[in-house]
């Protein structure tokens, strides 16, 4: 099956920095590709190349069979883009923004207005439709931005960290919207810094770091690779953190991480370990304020994938 979009061997240098060092990306039609990577990994650079905003130094990119470097004009009829930073005009109202984009996409006036109204409604912006975008909250702007990239009903949609700045409720709402777009046949490339988000949305995940692909897998495969879930225990009495660490280490058989004060985390292989931890904590008479299973953070996943930290403050993995 022909991929909906495909990038091969993308290289982009800015003076001394190599933003992309041979990145391959692709997705089947109607699927969501999650591109996961820390700050500066090259996510935005890759999206800008695919969206015809930037020319790579090497490599090729194709959207729906159209080479974006040879025929950028045709490619622009296929893709929609929501950049990392707001790309709507703050001096215009929500409606004016979407109608303008509709006109620029060759819709007739009535069609453009009709589509604008429907999109504003769909993104919960109907009440703010007549207000200037400069008066919108951060979350409203993100949603208007996403609506703007849907005006042309694009076959391929590029979303650069679309949920940054959204509260958890709005974020999950946006996740549902993105999923429903994919279900309707739109192919989505979504960048994120959160494994949780990629896990919730993506059919496949490409992890990039320092301009290189370091993993490509399904969410399940990737999670298995990076150690599945992590158990988090926070004793009510911080003085008992060491005791809690003992319990967790004994039950999971894995080294524990105590780099965050008062909290113990460790990878768990299956659900039984969690039940075991609950039992053991109870037996030890330990009261906890936090007890959870969660996916590894990007930091933890990176540590496993690359053996080095994701370019941020080092978290020490201690074995005590």
């Amino acid at each position: 099956m022909r991929p909906a979009f495909e990038a091969e061997g993308l290289v982009k240098r800015y003076g001394g920095t190599t933003a992309l060092d041979g990145v391959d990306l692709q997705a089947r039609p109607g699927t969501v590709l999650g591109v996961l990577g820390p700050n500066g990994a090259g996510k935005t650079t890759a999206i800008r190349i695919l969206a015809t905003l930037l020319r790579p130094d090497a490599g090729r990119a194709v959207v729906d069979g159209v080479d974006v470097l040879r025929d950028p004009v045709a490619a622009r009829r296929i893709v929609g883009l929501t950049g990392q930073y707001a790309t709507v005009d703050e001096d215009l109202t929500g409606t004016e923004n979407l109608v303008l984009f509709g006109r620029l996409l060759d819709l007739t006036g009535p069609d453009a207005r009709d589509r604008a109204a429907r999109l504003l409604d769909r993104f919960g912006l109907a009440d703010a439709a007549g207000r200037r975008a400069s008066t919108y909250s951060g979350g409203m702007r993100r949603r208007l931005d996403l609506a703007a990239s849907l005006v042309g009903a694009p076959r391929v949609l590029f979303l650069d960290e679309p949920t940054t700045g959204l509260d958890p409720g709005k974020r999950e709402e946006l996740w549902r919207t993105i999923r429903s777009l994919a279900d309707d046949g739109t192919t989505v490339l979504l960048t994120t810094q959160y494994l949780e988000e990629a896990d919730a949305l993506a059919d496949e995940i490409t992890v990039i770091d320092q301009g290189r692909v370091i993993a490509h897998d399904s969410p399940a495969g990737l999670k298995q690779h990076v150690g599945g879930q992590t158990v988090v225990v926070r004793p009510r009495d911080p003085a008992r953190t060491a005791d809690a660490a003992d319990v967790v280490r004994r039950v999971t058989g894995h080294p524990v991480d105590r780099s965050r004060g008062g909290v113990v985390t460790a990878p768990v292989d299956d659900g039984r370990a969690f039940a075991g931890i609950v039992r053991e904590l109870e037996r030890a008479g330990m009261d906890v304020t936090e007890l959870a299973l969660r996916l590894p953070s990007l930091d933890e996943a990176f540590f496993t994938l690359t053996g080095h930290d994701a370019g941020r403050t080092t978290t020490t993995q201690e074995d005590s």
Binding site: R118, L150, A153, P154, R155, G185, T186
Partner: peptide
């Protein structure tokens, strides 16, 4: 669907 479903509005593939 992805190649020809041009009639859909938002969310459906196909540019005007």
């Amino acid at each position: 669907t992805a190649a020809t479903g041009r009639s859909r509005v938002a969310g459906g593939p196909g540019a005007p």
